[in-house]
Each structure stands twice: as C-alpha cells, then as structure tokens.
C-alpha cells in the first residue's frame, strides 16, 4: 500500500475537550462560523451517557475524495507522496459543490473569501517534519497522525457508529471505540 497519512481518533482516550478544534483555529484563524475540526458528541443510542464520548473529525483525506471529484475547477489535489487531500483556495470559485458533496461536512464556505476551505492536514507543517497543530495539541494523545500503510492493525475501526459509512470514498480516518466504566449508582 502507498503511504497514506490519516488521523487516528482514539475515543477511548478522548475527553471531548475541544483542544484540537481550538488548536486548529489558533493556527488558521478561520472566519466566524467556519470550523475545520469539530468534536462531535456521540448520541445516547451509541454511547449511553450524554456528551461523554466523542468523535473529533476534520477532513478524512479519502482515497477517492468526493470533494476532488466534484470540483469543477480542479481546486483539490491528492498528494502522491502521502495521500493528503489539499484544497487550493486560490483556484476555488466558490460554487459550493464540494461542500454539498462531502458526506463528512469537511469543506466549509468562507463568507469573506467567498470560497470553500477545509483541513489540508497542515501539510506545510508535515513538510517541515512537524505534527499537525491539532495532533500536537491533544492532551491525551487521542488524536494521532498515522500512516495507514504502516499502521499495525489491531482494534481500529473505519466506520464506527456515528460516522457515515461511505465505502466508495474510503475515508482514511481510523477510530478506537470508547468504553464505559462500571456504574455504581445509588
């Protein structure tokens, strides 16, 4: 398999602290209402306690990216060397097609630039040998940078409950499921 950088989201460790989301904002200063990384609480049908287990998600850097396929102006590229899906904002004409098409809601409309934008995996940091801002920020190492070609396959899943199963896109993000403690209640 070719090198494919991916986020490993370990919900067993994740404390839903939103640090990763704010670290991204701190780095890119997105406009109001534009969120590249969001922390989604799992609904109670999936994890039995409200707002106590989470999925931290940004772009999934899919193998067959919907965003790239539907963009009429070729504003997206998938990097040969590591599979990162980069959005080139200067090319974007703001048609909104990628926003409508990505099942994960990763691309967002920037109302000031009048163009789409999304997480491009901090590729400028990757190129300098650094971790993405969000990955570096995570206080529990629940969010990690992995290479799917090299990752030891153990208990990771690709499509946890709470995450759209889009096999055609083949999103690269991998997950570890949250656990519940023994409850002793009065």
């Amino acid at each position: 398999m070719k090198k494919q950088y991916a986020f490993l989201v370990d919900s067993e460790r994740c404390i839903g602290c939103f640090t990763c989301a704010m670290a991204c904002r701190n780095y890119y200063h997105q406009e109001e209402g534009v969120v590249w990384r969001q922390v989604y609480p799992l609904s109670e049908e999936i994890y039995p306690h409200r707002e106590r287990a989470f999925l931290s998600l940004a772009c999934n850097h899919c193998e067959d990216p919907a965003c790239l396929n539907v963009c009429p102006v070729n504003a997206y590229t998938k990097r040969e060397e590591d599979g990162v899906v980069v959005h080139h904002q200067e090319k974007c004409i703001g048609c909104g097609n990628c926003i409508r098409s990505c099942p994960y809601g990763a691309p967002k409309y920037n109302p000031v630039e009048k163009r789409a934008e999304k997480c491009s995996f901090c590729h400028e940091r990757l190129d300098a040998g650094l971790k993405p801002a969000c990955v570096q920020s995570c206080p529990t190492k629940a969010l990690q940078l992995v290479d799917l070609a090299e990752m030891q396959q153990t208990n990771q899943v690709q499509y946890p409950a709470g995450y759209p199963k889009m096999e055609k896109l083949n999103p690269s993000t991998r997950f570890i499921l949250p656990k519940t403690p023994k409850m002793v209640r009065r």
Partner: peptide, 11 residues
C-alpha cells in the same frame, strides 16, 4: 438533510 448534520448520531 446532509449527512454532516447528524455526525455522532445513528446513520
């Protein structure tokens, strides 16, 4: 409704 509107919920 867009799939992204229900992230974290059942699909």
């Amino acid at each position: 409704v867009h799939t992204a509107a229900n992230m974290g919920g059942l699909y």
